[in-house]
Simulated scan of single mutants.
Amino acid sequence: MKRNERMICLVMTFLLCLGLAAGCGREEETDPAQIEGTYLCFVNNDGDGLVREEYEIKGDSTEEEIEDVLRAMKEEPDSIDYKSAFPENVQVTEWSLSDGKLSLTCSDGYLRMSGAEEVLLRAAAVESLCQISGVESVAFFIGENPLTDSDGNEIGYMMPDDFVQNTGSTLHSYQVRDLTLYFANEKGDALVPETVSVRYNSNLSVEKLIVEQLIKGPSREGERAVVPPETQVLGVSSRDGICYVNLDQEFLRGVSGVDPEVAVYAIVNSVIEGGGASQVQILVSGETDVSYMNRVTLSKPLTRNLDIVEETDS
């Protein structure tokens, strides 16, 4: 039996066991998709998530293993449930490895991919290739030019941890989503929106994803972070249209040069924009009786404030 067929059989058996457990009482659930060895990443048929398939990487050297992974990722899998992350018109024309940094040069077809396709391809390639001993990070080039984001900033070398992810191996666990995040402008007195595409685990709430991305900070020049990078997310939950964002004490240190209102409403506006809540309650170590920087009271849920967003020329 082929690997793909074995994996599908495992999933079907798991679902069958769940159905039997529902009728016969609670049973201990197990994960049918645990992968003990190496694997390749493919794209699901909906084009919004990755699938891990067990795969034994072949080769007697790092270089041979890289060639094997790139060849296998380009081929269409036998399964009809997922497909190659590489579109037909996208090829890796050459590659080089130096000090653990793997550079992939791709054909011009790379530039014609949609945003979701491009992010999924990067995520699949980085995760698959970084399993190889001697490969620590991966960068993409189009011809001699390094890959850049929509603002022209070089993306550079990436590791698996650069993508929002879960270390588990559940099938269809990853999704890609465009988020509108609000950061401070250069003066720190107004908000500016930034749209980012992130890959994340489907078990992670969008609201928590947004808060984590805000802590990570902006990627564009001329924008400033609004939350200290050492801030820990203690919990994010939603109830009755209110999203409760619980942060640790580091949040109260603030970011030098950023107005308190800008920092608070960066969180509020971003969470409401991308999530399902209409209000945001910010807590610090579980407490709401807090005045942030002695300027903004956090005792009650806050609604979106667009007056603090910097106007741009249309």
Rank of each mutant, 00 (worst) to 15 (best):
G254N: 11
A263K: 02
A263L: 01
E273N: 09
K216G: 15
V226G: 04
I215D: 02
E261F: 11
I272D: 04
K216H: 11
Q249T: 07
I242Y: 09
G254T: 11
P229L: 04
T231M: 09
D248H: 13
D248A: 03
N269M: 09
V280L: 09
E223C: 02
V227P: 08
D240T: 05
V284C: 07
P228I: 00
S256P: 00
E223V: 01
G235P: 08
Q213S: 15
V255Q: 06
G235N: 07
Y265H: 06
S256I: 12
V227Q: 07
L214M: 04
T231R: 14
I282C: 04
E223D: 04
V236H: 05
Q279F: 12
V227K: 02
S256T: 15
D259M: 01
L247N: 09
P228H: 03
A263M: 07
Q281H: 08
E221N: 15
S219D: 11
E212K: 15
Q249N: 14
Q279N: 03
T231F: 11
D240C: 04
F251H: 14
Y244P: 01
E223N: 09
I215V: 09
V284A: 01
V262P: 02
G275H: 05
I267T: 08
I282N: 00
V262E: 03
I242K: 04
I282S: 02
V255Y: 12
G241A: 02
R224E: 02
I272W: 13
G254P: 11
S237A: 12
S219N: 12
V227F: 09
R253Q: 15
V268W: 05
D248P: 13
V284Q: 14
A277P: 02
L247P: 04
G276A: 14
S238W: 01
G257H: 09
Q249H: 07
A277E: 10
Y244Q: 04
P229T: 07
I242L: 08
Y265T: 06
F251E: 00
G276K: 13
E250Y: 13
E230M: 12
P229K: 08
G241C: 05
I242W: 03
V258R: 03
G274E: 14
E273I: 12
P228A: 00
E223L: 13
Q279Y: 13
G241S: 10
V284P: 05
R253H: 14
D259K: 08
G222W: 13
L234N: 14
P228F: 00
A266I: 06
V211A: 07
I272S: 06
G241I: 02
Q281I: 13
I215W: 04
P229Q: 11
I272Y: 14
S256W: 07
E261M: 12
R224D: 02
E273V: 09
P218R: 11
I267E: 01
N269D: 11
F251A: 06
Q232D: 10
E273T: 15
V280S: 04
I242T: 13
S278R: 15
I272L: 14
G241V: 06
V236W: 03
R224A: 06
V226T: 13
S256K: 14
R239K: 06
G276F: 07
